[in-house]
Amino acid sequence: MNCEHARALLPESVYVELPVAQRDELKQHVSQCPACAEAWRGLHGVRQMLDSLPPPAVEVDLPLLYQEARALDDRRLRRWRRVAWASAAAAGVLLTVTILRVEVRWDQRELAFGWGAARPVPPVLKLPEESPLPTTVLADLQLVKDLIHSIVADMDERQQEHAAALANLEQRLESIQSMSNRRSLATQNDFRALYTACFGVAEKGAIP
């Protein structure tokens, strides 16, 4: 056995019985090798010194232990109870919201609650994206536009003509009426003169 092998076995040899052959080999080496012998003595000394430490005088306080265990169990139970209550409350709220279809919204600086059917959401009109029209269509549109303008101009012109003709007719109607009045007055005068001539007196009720 060499020193390296002996040093590897020394720590364990201090604590356990090595197999007989190994122990004898180690003993023989240690008896011949002062360095290993010193190491061997040193390790035994360490073991003795470790043994010299007094054991601590500690005694478990069993009543306190039972009390602490009960307190911990109570605390755990309370924690579980809180979790259970919180879960039940959350489930209740969720169920209420789901069944009643509760709606909470913040709208124009007002907090609004609602339940029942949800308000119909107006459909969002989606405008088609503008696409350039073909030139021919644009030309046709321009033609239609010009046509409409000319029709409007023509109608204005006709309307002015009609208005002038109407004014002319009104003027003629007024002159005919005036002439008719004059003739009627002349006829009355003639009739009155003829009555006076025939009967010598003015017609009764006639205007003098």
Partner: peptide, 28 residues
């Protein structure tokens, strides 16, 4: 752990060298 044990004992042997009792092998 075996290696650590050997290393630990070696360190203790060095650090406690001056305090160590004179151990004589009783069985040899």
């Amino acid at each position: 752990l075996k290696s650590r044990f050997a290393a630990a004992l070696e360190r203790l042997r060095v650090s406690l060298g001056t305090l160590r009792p004179d151990f004589e092998e009783s069985e040899s």
